[in-house]
Write a protein that binds this DNA or RNA. Structure first.
Length: 470
RNA sequence: GUGAGCGUAGUGUAGUGGUUAGCACAAGAGUUUGUGGAACUCUUAGGGGGAGUUCGAAUCUCCUCGCUCACCCCA
């Protein structure tokens, strides 16, 4: 065993790219979770939790050995027993594994599952990207109809709507399947082969390793060449073409504003046919406001009719009209994955949302979420006898579901009232030596400052009465 | 993996080679013995870490760690 290095003299910090989710942020996480759970269960998804650690091979087989996620971003380690395990970099492969492992093929289709939890990718952290981050996602198994693709998009869309995202753009594309994509890839490669010189250095590299990726480039010269390049949607096999057309029709029917982006390619190998991403178009970087005022965000408009019969084109020369570059949500169909991972061939689709990214966008919109309910009653106590009684009384309140703040550690009444004031309670109860002996307690109204002595056994009733009035 | 900027109490900051390292907020204690919000007093707590230059470093150099941002890629 290697030595543990990097010992610090002064305290510890989270490792690179890892973050504590502090109480302030818990409220955002909780809100997202609640809305998600609420909506998703309406659509018939059931929650699943898979381990954070899986056999490394699950991901290399599932996501693809040559993908960046597996190749460079996976936390892989060997156990004492010699197994290679990995911190999960995404959710789909795990859910598929669970689906197969527990024989869910025999469940009535479609089988709909959702999850919410941490994921890990070893990469340089930056805006909207962390080494540990959280996602929620849904997967639907056993439905090959594009109606499921559309519903998945719809569910994400609804959740974001419910979270007050108003300007959302759904980008969609179809990247073909095992029938047509290999053929298209060849076509593209041969197109690129004779034009490599015109590309930027990065794209030349991309052309070799992952040709579809050249579409991501923003260089002007590359833009020009790729504008002429064959596009996957023009070379779909009939099945994919129809699937895509129907998918778009469903989106139209749902009145989901989408934008067809023929350049949308996703970095995971398992996708077939439908892929999509959802962006928020609202004022993302309003700190760098100069740019925003000079280049007011342009919104994509929905393609007319959405029919695949009309020529498919992008509204602006591949230029994104919105400032946010990070997708809030990404997903698609993966009809081959179940088989790849050793299960029955099962069509499936799903997607995942980045929670930190959503939180970031929420904060920009509404920097302050309403405060959680604070206690309305404070209990102050004086002297040992009273302190002992107070503890007991505190339990009485809990049984009656009245939340009470306390400061049992403090003995000074002044300090206790100060603390009580800071919490902003409505009533403060004061129990001292004298009151305990008399079997009474003081109720002090913090607004008016008036106080009243009541019988100790009636205190719950009295407090309830006062809280109700206010 | 590549590139840029940054790193002073819990938070926000001042200080560009010699200061007891200053200020604000927050936190805690108190201003005579059982009554809050104001004011005042006091306390806690600081230059990420390490080397070097120098008589002397928060300040200059290097390394390292971390943060932020971008490339890449993705949620």
């Amino acid at each position: 065993m290697e030595e543990y290095r990097g010992r610090r003299k002064k305290g510890y910090q989270t490792p690179t790219g890892m973050h504590d989710v502090l109480p302030q942020d818990q409220r955002y996480f909780q809100k997202i979770y609640n809305i998600c759970e609420n909506i998703v269960s309406f659509y018939g998804f059931q929650k699943i939790e898979t381990p954070i650690v899986e056999t490394a091979e699950l991901f290399s087989k599932g996501i693809g050995l040559a993908t960046d996620i597996v190749e460079k971003q996976m936390y892989v380690f060997r156990t004492k027993g010699g197994d290679w395990l990995a911190l999960r970099p995404e959710g789909t492969a795990s859910v598929v594994r669970a689906f197969i492992e527990h024989g869910m093929q025999s469940l009535p289709k479609p089988v709909k599952l959702w999850y919410f939890g941490p994921f890990f990718r070893y990469e340089h952290p930056q805006a909207g990207r962390f080494r540990q981050f959280h996602q929620f996602g849904f997967e639907a198994f056993g439905e090959k109809s594009p109606v499921m693709d559309a519903q998945i998009v719809q569910v994400f869309y609804n959740i974001l709507k419910e979270l007050r995202f108003d300007k959302l753009v759904v980008e969609v594309n179809n990247i073909g399947d095992s029938q047509c994509r290999p053929y298209y890839k060849k076509l593209l490669v041969s197109y690129l082969k004779y034009r490599l010189g015109g590309f930027c250095a990065v794209c030349r590299q991309r052309a070799k390793e992952n040709p579809l990726r050249i579409f991501d480039c923003k260089e002007e010269k590359c833009q020009r060449i790729k504008a002429q390049a064959p596009q996957i949607i023009d070379h779909l096999c009939e099945e994919c073409h129809n699937h895509f057309r129907e998918f778009l029709e469903f989106l139209d029917e749902l009145e989901l504003p989408y934008n067809l982006n023929p350049y949308l390619v996703r970095g995971l190998d398992y996708y077939t046919k439908t892929v999509f991403e959802i962006f928020s178009t609202s004022t993302e970087n309003f700190n760098s406001s100069q740019q925003d005022s000079e280049y007011p965000p342009k919104l994509y408009t929905k393609e007319d009719g959405g029919s695949a019969e009309t020529p498919l084109k992008l509204s602006e020369e591949g230029e994104k009209g919105y400032t946010s570059k990070d997708a809030l949500v990404g997903g698609g169909r993966y009809d081959n994955l179940c088989k790849i991972l050793g299960g029955e061939p099962t069509p499936a689709c799903g997607g995942a949302a980045g929670i930190e990214r959503i939180v970031k966008a929420m904060k920009q919109r509404t920097p302050k979420l309403p405060q959680p309910q604070l206690p309305k009653v404070f209990m102050a106590q004086l002297g040992n006898l009273a302190k002992r009684k107070s503890l007991k009384l505190f339990e009485e309140f809990r049984k009656n579901r009245i939340s009470v703040a306390d400061s049992f550690g403090r003995d000074d009444l002044k300090a206790q009232l100060k603390a009580s004031d800071r919490i902003g309670v409505q009533l403060t109860l004061i129990l001292g030596q004298k009151e305990v002996l008399e079997g009474t307690i003081i109720i002090k109204d913090m607004k008016t400052g008036r106080q009243e002595t009541v019988k100790l056994e009636k205190i719950i009733k009295e407090v309830k009465k006062r809280l109700k009035k206010a």
